[in-house]
Simulated scan of single mutants.
Amino acid sequence: MTGPILFVKAYVPPHLRGGHQVKGYHRRDRPGHSQPAKAVHHPELDHHGEPVKIHQPSTPTPLAAFGDPKAVATVVPGGEVPAQLHGVLFEPWADHPTTAEGWDYVDGVNDDLDEPPIHAPKGKVVASGVVIEEPDGRIWLVAPTNGFGGYRASFPKGNAEPELSLQANAIKEAFEETGLKVEITGFVGDFERTTSVARLYLAKRVGGTPARMGWESQAVHLAPKDKLYGLLNMATDHGPAEAIGAGPKPPPPPKPPAQPYPKNHESGMLF
């Protein structure tokens, strides 16, 4: 007589499946049984002071992933991070600016950077953001809360605020979305997106902690360049990834075949 069937939770780490990044999840050993993630509230309130529910929380990776330059490391709000990485401590940026004037004079703006003018076509706005690179070549990405806008992951960025320079705006957006304090080190390019033209700067992390990401993010990833396309599901992010050395961007998905118009059997006309 066989013994009782035991159902033991097993953790499946984030991995690539068919060229797409699959986030980590828990499952039961018996096929067909899974352990869905329970909704949680983000530790940070939104702009209106209201709680934000994360319907499908991301799964953090083990801390050892931070020390592996070939691995994707994932942090969730309030999650664990190592004490430091590449000699820079992970600790909250306690004295960050809180006013537009403060952000406009924030440390990290590169006054020596030679930037071209930026132009946005009619109907689109100007935005700015950063590509934050670690000494081991890995890049910081954000996972928008509840997949906002259809994004699984993206570079930290946001629409330009009229009171701020584009560099100051990019530093502010990086902090709000990743919890990190950054310094601008270079210019990546201007990239047309669905509703904006985004200027992206190259930046380095000099402080902060991803565990203190704002409510707009439900996870922050640190990813090798050769794994960026598996995380960045929107084609609008593929141009920046290619520009920073992620390799040739993947071809666009094939368009579905055109469907013939239904035919009016009485008149023979198409409508």
Rank of each mutant, 00 (worst) to 15 (best):
L113F: 11
T145Y: 10
R205K: 13
H55Y: 13
E80R: 12
L6I: 05
G78S: 06
S196D: 15
G3E: 12
D114Q: 13
G18N: 13
V125Q: 07
H86I: 03
V220A: 07
A211E: 03
S165L: 07
D114N: 10
G49I: 02
K249E: 15
H41I: 00
D29T: 14
Q167A: 07
P97K: 02
H48L: 02
G67A: 15
D107I: 01
A241H: 02
V12S: 12
A153R: 09
Q218G: 03
E266I: 07
A65N: 11
G129A: 12
P257E: 01
V126K: 11
L200E: 05
A153I: 04
G150Y: 03
H33L: 15
V106F: 07
A71H: 10
R138Q: 05
W93I: 04
R138V: 06
F7S: 09
D112T: 15
D46Y: 05
Y229G: 08
P156A: 08
P251Y: 06
A143Q: 08
S267Y: 07
P97E: 03
R28C: 14
K172L: 05
V8N: 12
V76L: 08
P4I: 11
E133F: 04
M1N: 02
G87P: 03
P92T: 03
T236F: 11
D190Y: 05
N264Q: 05
A219Y: 01
L270A: 00
E192M: 14
L113G: 10
E183N: 13
E176S: 04
T61R: 11
